[in-house]
């Protein structure tokens, strides 16, 4: 299993400040990333910079954790199975249980929320059987009930998030 959970500090330093090229990339390439042999060069041509500039800007944003990756966002329950799960964890056990839940590779998101149901996490695997196994394993390991809130319908057409530059 994993080490201790690493909670995100609430009052951490000021946010990442992107430069002009980074802003252009964040505004223009959260979707529609070129599916061509040299995608970074294709982007560079659109932005009027060099391929090296684009790669360096993306690397900087990854370094600053402004982006997690260049990747594909997969619609839930198409290439695999997933669910949202919730637990009511006694406050004194929350850090330990969060670390236990984090220990599963199939857990992609794990948040503390302000509610009696205070731990919310997403489980994604290649099939529903595996999702069920993970939920069952977490119940057994923690002795707590896991609420399985499986997806019925997705209403959001994801084009990326419009960041507001101030």
């Amino acid at each position: 299993m994993s080490g201790p959970a690493t909670p995100y500090p609430v009052d951490e330093a000021r946010p990442y400040t992107p430069g002009a090229l980074e802003k252009a990339l964040l505004d223009g390439f959260q979707d529609g990333f070129p599916l061509t042999e040299r995608p970074y060069r294709a982007i560079a041509e659109k932005c009027g910079v060099s391929e090296e500039d684009v790669v360096a800007a993306i690397a900087r944003m990854q370094e600053a954790k402004a982006i997690s990756r260049v990747g594909a966002v997969v619609r839930p329950n198409t290439a695999g199975a997933s669910t949202l799960a919730a637990m009511a964890v006694p406050p004194e056990r929350l850090d330990d249980v969060a670390a236990q839940v984090n220990g599963y590779d199939q857990v992609t998101h794990n948040y503390e929320r302000e509610h009696e149901l205070n731990l919310w996490f997403v489980v994604t695997a290649t099939g529903r059987d595996m999702v069920d196994n993970v939920l069952q394993d977490i119940e057994t390991a923690t002795g707590l009930t896991v609420l399985d809130l499986s997806l019925v319908e997705d209403y959001h057409i994801d084009l990326g998030f419009p960041l507001q530059w101030t």
Partner: peptide, 16 residues
Amino acid sequence: GVIKRMGLVVRHHENG
């Protein structure tokens, strides 16, 4: 539609 979108995956928190 299996891939909803392809590109930079933004981390909201770090962007303010």
